[in-house]
Amino acid sequence: MPSYRARLQIGDVLPGHRPEEVLDTAEAAIGATHEVAAKDVEVVARVPRIVLRFTVPAAHRGAEDAEAAAVAGRMAEAVAAVATVGRLDVLRREGGRWLPVSAR
Rank of each mutant, 00 (worst) to 15 (best):
G73V: 00
V85Y: 09
P2V: 11
T33D: 03
R74P: 02
S3Y: 04
E64M: 13
P48L: 01
G16W: 15
D12G: 00
E64C: 08
P15N: 07
V101L: 06
G31N: 09
P57V: 04
V56M: 07
G73T: 00
E21Y: 04
V85P: 10
P15F: 14
E21S: 04
T55Y: 06
F54P: 05
D65R: 13
E42H: 08
A28S: 15
R61N: 04
A72R: 02
R46H: 06
P15Q: 08
D12N: 00
R5Q: 14
V90E: 00
L88I: 10
H60Y: 09
R93D: 04
P57H: 06
K39A: 14
A63H: 05
I30C: 07
V47F: 02
E42Y: 09
D40A: 15
L8S: 13
G62F: 09
H17V: 04
V43Y: 07
M75L: 13
E94L: 13
R7N: 06
G86D: 14
A83V: 00
A72L: 04
R18P: 00
S3G: 03
F54I: 06
A6K: 03
R18T: 12
A78W: 10
M1C: 11
P100C: 03
D24Q: 13
E67V: 06
A68V: 01
E42C: 05
T55D: 13
G31P: 05
D40V: 12
D24V: 07
A68W: 03
H34N: 11
A29S: 15
V71N: 02
G86Y: 11
A81Y: 03
H34R: 14
E35P: 10
A58L: 14
H34L: 09
V36M: 07
S3C: 02
R93I: 05
G73K: 03
G96F: 02
R61F: 00
E67G: 01
V47L: 06
R49S: 10
I50M: 06
G95H: 05
A37V: 14
V36I: 12
V22W: 08
L14D: 10
M75A: 12
H60Q: 11
R87M: 15
G86K: 14
T25M: 13
A63R: 11
G95A: 05
R92C: 07
T25Y: 11
P15M: 10
D65W: 02
L14F: 05
V101S: 00
H60P: 00
R97E: 10
W98F: 09
E94C: 05
A68Y: 02
P15D: 08
P19A: 08
R49F: 03
M1F: 08
H60F: 10
R18M: 06
E35G: 07
R74L: 02
R93N: 03
G73D: 02
G31A: 11
L23A: 03
V36F: 11
A59H: 04
R104W: 09
P15V: 01
A81D: 14
A66L: 13
I50Y: 03
